[in-house]
Amino acid sequence: MPDPEPALVVNELTKRFGERTAFSGVSFQVAYGEVFGFLGPNGAGKTTTVRTLGTLIAPTSGSATVAGIPLSPENGVEIRQRIAIMPEAPGLYLRLTVTENLEYFAGLYGLRQAGSRIKDALDAVNLGDRAGDLCGGLSKGLRHRVGLARTLLSDPAVMFLDEPTSGLDPVAAREVHDLISGLRQKGVTIFLTTHRLEEAEKLCDRVAILNTTLRVVGRPVELREQLFKSALVVKTLVPLGDPDQLFTRIPSVEGWRSDDPGSYVLSVSDPTVAAPEVTRGLVSVGAEVLAIGEAHHSLEDVYLELIDEDVEARKR
């Protein structure tokens, strides 16, 4: 059976505001049911990309298909009917209750008899008992949850969440993470922009890193493998007498460096082959080994490597 049509297809999309380029030549695809992380520093063009795909602003060039519909001004209403966007600030009417806010948006999506939809959305974000509260009296975290409930109302094919945990304390952020994880398990397609890397690593199937141009797209583990060679980390109680002589005679070790006394990072092609050889070598010279293990690079390492490359390139 052929692959189903992707939820998002973006092809060489560019947006310029006069002389300033918000993003340029961006291409990627997002499958239905996928949680796709869109990462980048402030001003990288993440929010502008979401606004463009959400038909709020027009691209300067390029093309895209959103929820199966070509991105164009004429298709704006139809696209917006199939997607939901939660901007960075939830933008609630503070003098209205939670239910009244949701009733309003249910009406804007043309939903009649929206009572059960509203109840389901509030239950999904654990706000059923706050339905009658004025939004002005809710904490920031609860307002974000109302914003999430609002995006659930229309049962969207694609949900865009723009910095959903921005400005939230760790507890409130974790609640939002749990909600997104729950949506992921239900198969909701989510396009998540964030600059919280641990959030992306935890929640996303794939990530893209944008810094005006798209730097990489892939699974976090693939990006780590692409950018960083495999490495072993060796720690000894006492610094080795002649680490160079030891490590260069082990065939599976391609290079080494020492960050601290008694701490060594060895570049290897295959850690499972190198680790026993390195252990034998260390024992043969009488090293007092504290630990030996595979080095792990986080998504943050990948991100910083790419963004640092951009900074260096701009300096040149």
Binding site: G54, L56, R80, Q81, I83, I85, M86, G91, L108, Y109
Partner: peptide, 14 residues
């Protein structure tokens, strides 16, 4: 100014 316009514009409202 209230920040409520953008969520409104993301809906199918013409």
């Amino acid at each position: 100014e209230q920040g409520t316009l953008e969520p409104l514009l993301t809906t199918p409202l013409r």
